[in-house]
Design a protein around this nucleic acid. Structure first.
Lengths: 134, 134
DNA sequence: TTAGTTGCAAAAAGTTTGCAGCACG
DNA sequence: CGTGCTGCAAACTTTTTGCAACTAA
């Protein structure tokens, strides 16, 4: 699978990107595909996956894995390093960042002799709106 | 799938548990299954999965997902809340904990109106031994 | 024109389930 | 003895790949 020298703009690619842009939380590929189909702007599932891969590679989109093993994608509003606060009920995600954690991970790693450290932090809870409607 | 009223002790269950106990890092079900088979103490892959599920449910074992979508299991040395510092090369995992992160996640959640907060933190890097042998 | 893109069908990969037989207590 | 446990084969789920037709530039 050679990376194309240049990318071409297509209806399908635009559809995937714009739907992701219009979404607020994390969404699965299957979910995105279903919505595109529902709204009549159909795109093959394969193509949805291919565009998502490209976007993740380009750093435009974040990907994470559910405990259930499903991949979720989300447009990054902020290109800088950040983490997510996800609502377990409605899926809304807030991007958060903080020196505190960054410092902590660095310190812990150093303490144990680890280098080239990278980290993933996901905080899940129930957002205000969902706990109100519960 | 009804949960058995009581558990029975079997050769297979013991094999899975003891191998996990003897392992230091995170291991996949397939990996554990292969090693059991290799050492002649064969157990069906299905059974390995079933025991791992049980152990995770009992809180004796930690499970996490690779970015690639594979589930990894590890015996918890420490039953208290903790996180992992995993070596990306050899898989060795160190259990770490710290007030700093706990406080940070709590603060961030509160700040955004989230409740019932839970979090996952995985720090991956290259351990001393691996960076030395590289 | 021509290389990148699409999407169907089929393959992978990992995990779960149906079921008949085995074994602990 | 009886209820769990086992493991094979088959089903499932999510994601990837082969390939021929299609299309933006």
């Amino acid at each position: 699978v050679t990376t194309p020298r240049r990318a071409r703009s297509t209806r399908q690619g635009a559809a995937v990107e714009s739907l992701l842009e219009a979404s607020s939380g994390f969404r699965s590929a299957q979910d995105l595909h279903a919505e595109l189909r529902r709204r009549g702007d159909a795109v093959g599932l394969t193509t949805v996956y291919r565009h998502l891969q490209g976007l993740v590679g380009a750093g435009t989109v974040d990907m994470l894995r559910t405990t259930a093993g499903e991949a979720l994608y989300r447009q990054c509003a902020d290109a800088r390093h950040h983490h997510h606060l996800v609502c377990r009920s409605c899926g809304t995600a807030v991007e958060v960042s903080g020196q505190a954690v960054e410092r902590w991970t660095g310190a812990v790693a150093r303490e144990h002799g680890f280098t080239d450290v990278d980290h993933t932090i996901e905080v899940v809870g129930t957002c205000r709106a969902c706990s109100a409607s519960a």
